[in-house]
């Protein structure tokens, strides 16, 4: 397992002009990203939908890389999206998934069969042409440049350290600095989308 922030710091070096949907990694990415207008930090509009949203964005903007940091809890809730992605084959879609083996925001309870799911194999079996899995940061860092050069859709599962939150939701520090609609509007403005 490795820390999400450490992984994102490495990713940042290779981000280029990709649109980033940081998903559950948003709280870290917001302090790491050097191109916030190309980021779409949405927090959690409704659990299970991050991949579908980023997939839609990738289909809408086929000439721009779209990188998603999904989570295993979200993906378990919407596994069927893998088949939809694989059918459409968006060549610009890079689907990274943070697997901390638990629901960290609700206190760290394990997701179903937490330690025994091979998400890369599920992605591959769903039709993703390329899928990888990492549990060591060095191996991830070494492979990342090549992964981002490959034609999408690409799936990358990563074992990350849980960052469990136990405070009541109302007492947690809010990390989002823009509203969801503002983040989308900033992206559209940056890309000159009418």
């Amino acid at each position: 397992m490795f820390k999400t922030a450490d992984m994102l710091n490495i990713f940042q070096k290779y981000r280029g002009d990709a649109i980033v949907v940081p998903g559950r990694g948003g709280r870290h990415w917001i302090n790491i990203s050097q191109k916030p207008k190309l980021d779409v930090p949405l927090g959690d509009p409704a659990m299970g939908g991050h991949c579908a949203f980023a997939f839609g964005l990738a289909m809408a903007l086929p000439h721009r890389k779209v990188v998603l940091f999904d989570s295993e809890g979200d993906l378990q809730m919407s596994l069927g999206v893998l088949m939809s992605v694989a059918e459409q084959k968006p060549a610009n879609f890079y689907h990274f998934m943070l697997d901390n083996e638990c629901y960290a925001t609700t206190g760290g309870q394990p997701v179903p069969n937490a330690k025994n799911v091979q998400y890369d194999l599920i992605a591959k079996g769903s039709g993703y042409p390329r899928a990888f899995a990492f549990d060591e940061l060095d191996a991830f860092a070494k492979a990342l440049p090549d992964i981002l050069e490959q034609k999408g859709p690409v799936f990358v599962a990563m074992k990350v350290v849980p960052e469990v939150e136990n405070e009541a939701i109302g007492q947690r520090k809010r990390w989002m600095t823009r509203t969801r609609t503002q983040a989308i509007n900033d992206l559209r403005q940056e890309l000159r989308i009418a």
Partner: peptide
């Protein structure tokens, strides 16, 4: 372009991404 989903809730989030991207 027809985008098939396996559960209808996915249609909402896919549509949101498409609309955000100008489609």
């Amino acid at each position: 372009t027809l985008v098939a989903v396996s559960r209808e809730g996915l249609a909402a989030s896919i549509a949101a991404g498409l609309a955000a991207g100008g489609k």
